[in-house]
Design a protein around this nucleic acid. Structure first.
Lengths: 223, 223
DNA sequence: ACCTGAACACCGTTCAAGT
DNA sequence: ACCTGAACACCGTTCAAGT
C-alpha cells in the first residue's frame, strides 16, 4: 500500500511546490481555454492540485494574479528594433507584432486591452513607438499624444477583431434576418481581419504623413 | 398606529409596482454611480425596495438586464440626419454624437463598447453611417467593412478616453516615477480628450478621402 | 516558510409556496 | 399575475491552526 496517494499516471500535476511562475502559467492555460471571466482561484487551485488558500502565499489576490499573467505575456513582446528602416515600416512592424501577440492569447489580451496600465513607460514597445514617431519628425511635445491615440486606435481594432465585432459588423448591412444566429465568436483570424487591419494601418500612416508635410509646409513653405 | 410601515419621509422608493422600465432606470442610476461591475441583483432590489427575486418576474436574468439598459440608453441616440451636408461633415457629426452619448453614461458605455452586438442592423446610427459612406462614393461592396473599422476605431479611442488610458499614456514619456500615483480615473473630459478625438477623426477622414480619390484616379485617370 | 480547513460575506438563480 | 423565503451552488478572502 506504500503511500497509495498518487493516482495511476500523470493525472497529478504537482509533485513540485507551488511557484509564482507556475501559478501564472497554469492561470494562462485556463484563460486561453475559457477566458478571463471563467478563471477562478478555486479552479486554478484544483488544476494545480493545491488548496485554494495555498495560492495566497504566492500571489496577494486575484487582481494581482491577472496583472502578473498579463505582465508575463507582455514580456514576450520584444519587438525587433529595425533601426534603419523608414518610420512607416517600423510603425507597421510594431503594429503587426502587437497583433501577433493578440492572436496568440486572444482571451487574455481582450482583457488586458481594457486595463489602462497595460502600457507602461518602461515597455520597450512604448519606447520603440515614441522613438519612431520622433524620428518621423513629429514635434517632440506631440509625440506622447500621437502615440497614445495610435495605441487606442490599434487596440480598438484588435479588440473588435478578437471579440468578433469586426466580423459581425462587416456582415450587417443586408437585413439578413434568417442568417445563422449566434455563430461562435469566430476569432476572425481569416483574411478579413488581415485586410481590415492593414486598411486601418494604411489610413493612419497616410494621415500622419499628410499631417507632417502640412506642418512643414506651414513652417517653411515647401520641402 | 395605522399601517406604520412607511418610513418617515421619501426614503421609500416604491409605492408603485415594479416595471421593466423602472428596473432599467434604477439599474442605470446604479451603473452611472458605481460602474457595471458593482451592479448586483440584490443591490438593485434594495434600491427598488423589493425582494431580489421579484426582479426575475420582469427580467429573465442579469445579462438581459444589462442588455436592456444598454438598449434603452442607445435608443436616446437619435442622430440628426443632416441630409444635405458633405459626407465629411456628416461623419464628424455622427462621431461626436457618439462621443456625447459616451460622456453621458461613461460607465455603461465602457461596458457596452465591449459587446459585439452593441451595434445592430436596425440601428439608425448604422443606417446613417453606411448611407453616408455610400454617398461619399465608397464602393458598395466595401461599405460595411469600412463602416465596421470606423466604428472599431472610434470605439477604441472613446474606450481609452473613458477609462483614462488616453490621458495616462499621453503623460507617459517622462519617466516621472514620483508623480502622483493612482489618480482617479479622470474621465479626460478636458480639452485633451477633445483635441485627440478630433485628431483621430481628421486622420481617418483624410485617409478615406485619399483612398477615394486614389480609386477614382485608378479607374478613369483624373477627376 | 509553507500549507490547510473552517468560516465569512458575498454572488446569481431555482423552486415551492404564498397572495 | 405577482411576489417571497429558503436554499443551492458558487465566489474571493480572512484567520487561526497545523507542519
Amino acid at each position: 500500500m506504500e503511500k497509495a496517494k498518487r493516482p495511476p499516471r500523470g493525472t497529478r500535476k504537482r509533485d513540485v511546490p507551488l511557484t509564482e511562475a507556475g501559478i501564472y502559467a497554469a492561470a494562462l492555460q485556463l484563460i486561453d481555454a475559457d477566458g478571463v471571466e471563467a478563471l477562478t482561484m478555486r479552479k486554478l487551485a484544483t488544476v494545480l492540485d493545491a488548496n485554494p488558500m495555498s495560492l495566497y502565499h504566492h500571489v496577494p489576490n486575484k487582481d494581482a494574479l491577472l496583472r502578473g499573467v498579463a505582465r508575463m505575456v507582455g514580456a514576450q513582446f520584444r519587438t525587433v528594433t529595425l533601426e534603419d528602416s523608414p518610420w512607416q515600416e517600423r510603425i507597421r512592424l510594431l503594429a503587426t507584432d502587437f497583433r501577433t501577440l493578440a492572436h496568440r492569447h486572444p482571451k487574455l489580451m481582450a482583457y488586458s486591452f481594457g486595463q489602462p496600465d497595460f502600457i507602461q513607460s518602461e515597455d520597450p514597445f512604448w519606447a520603440a513607438l515614441t522613438a519612431t514617431l520622433d524620428s518621423a519628425g513629429v514635434p517632440h511635445a506631440e509625440v506622447p499624444q500621437i502615440a497614445a491615440v495610435m495605441c487606442a486606435v490599434v487596440i480598438g481594432v484588435l479588440t473588435a477583431e478578437l471579440n468578433g465585432a469586426l466580423h459581425q459588423w462587416s456582415n450587417l448591412t443586408p437585413p439578413a434576418p434568417a442568417a445563422r444566429e449566434n455563430r461562435p465568436p469566430d476569432t476572425d483570424a481569416g483574411p478579413d481581419g488581415d485586410r481590415m487591419f492593414r486598411l486601418v494601418l494604411d489610413t493612419i500612416i497616410t494621415g500622419l504623413e499628410s499631417r507632417l508635410t502640412a506642418d512643414r509646409d506651414g513652417q517653411r513653405a515647401g520641402q
